[in-house]
Design a protein around this nucleic acid. Sequence first.
DNA 1: TGCCTTGTTTTACAAATGATCAATAACCCA
DNA 2: TGGGTTATTGATCATTTGTAAAACAAGGCA
Lengths: 216, 216
Amino acid sequence: MASDRRPYKRESEDVRRDSLINAALELIADGGPKAATVRAIAEKAGVTAGLIRHYFASKEDLVRESYRRMMDRMTADNAAVLDDARPDPVVRLATFVAASLQPPVVDPTRVGLWAGFLHGVQIDPQIRKVHIQTYLAYRDLLQNLIEHLPEMTNPRCPRAAAIACNGVIDGLWMEASAVPEVFEPGEILEIGLIAVGKILEVDLLTAFKTEHQDMA
Amino acid sequence: MASDRRPYKRESEDVRRDSLINAALELIADGGPKAATVRAIAEKAGVTAGLIRHYFASKEDLVRESYRRMMDRMTADNAAVLDDARPDPVVRLATFVAASLQPPVVDPTRVGLWAGFLHGVQIDPQIRKVHIQTYLAYRDLLQNLIEHLPEMTNPRCPRAAAIACNGVIDGLWMEASAVPEVFEPGEILEIGLIAVGKILEVDLLTAFKTEHQDMA
DNA sequence: TGCCTTGTTTTACAAATGATCAATAACCCA
DNA sequence: TGGGTTATTGATCATTTGTAAAACAAGGCA
């Protein structure tokens, strides 16, 4: 008798967990948290719903892991920009700031995903911990870049400078991602470079333009 | 035979709609969007679930209205600060910025509520419209304050200046609201005033301190 | 007072959700 | 090659969800 049972392939724990996490992230990104049901996640990951609880203690557990994954990616993306950048500290900072204010970091999908989790920061201690770690990692990166600026323009309080610059970047990132149609093309990038430049008293815009003359 | 039916009082449409909207906002604020079920909303509003659809076409409709209400409140709060402020343009701007970086505007509950809706901005056209209107209203208010600054310090492009300042304020507001324990008391306020001041080349911090000598 | 409108409750329902677990078959290894 | 391990399926459960509509009663008005 022919079995009408669905054929499948056994996969390693890593592969399956990755599939499920990615599926959850995609669903939350474009349908919000409520779209990430166990069945939808399973289908997108190419498995059946029952398998989720073979790899995660609960759906909530999977969501937590997904948040961690998303934040890890953001941190990695941010740090990666600096690998290719020239050693000049001003150019490095300009490159770093610019990366956060352009695609693919600026992206409606990403901000939706990020917002979907933000409420969890208020409720779930583990999500909160990850949020703080990621925030501080980004800010420390920024502070480090600031501290390597030419001595003359070195701010008295690097911590405060980093918090301020982080604020501008976050705010502009959010707005540009959420409602891009409100701004002119490239406007947010230029405004961000100018604003961070004024806070630090460095001309980031010129530094960025000379470095990337190929761009508009 | 004694009726075990729950006693009730007839109320006007306004009262009932207000109760339901407020209940929805409270629930979303401290339990996230998923906590705002029709039954929970009804209970918090002191009615039974069936009544919701007597005043709203659907739950989604109620949520939309709630979002509008929240945004209206934020706009009103922001504008209200300026009523009491002295006519001096620098002081007015400083007061306005400071209000956005202190309680009750800075508040974990508020940012949770705000985040709960942010995903809707990507999906629901009506929510998106309200979001844009509110954003532009705040930014225009800011731009207006900036344009009234002493001519010498008047920025060449008020629009860009307003976008930048709005960015700092939003970013710092979000971070201070989400994870206040990462900052020292009053730190965000001071950093925000300095940052906006540097962008506009005005000393907002001094203006704020002289105006509010009673504060730390 | 007594009727009528309609705000409100109540019950009901179908669909969806997260969870559970026995059955099964894919793959590893002896 | 064949048996055992276990990853995976699939069926099922108890809840919860938004919605629907009938039954009821509060308050206005003649």
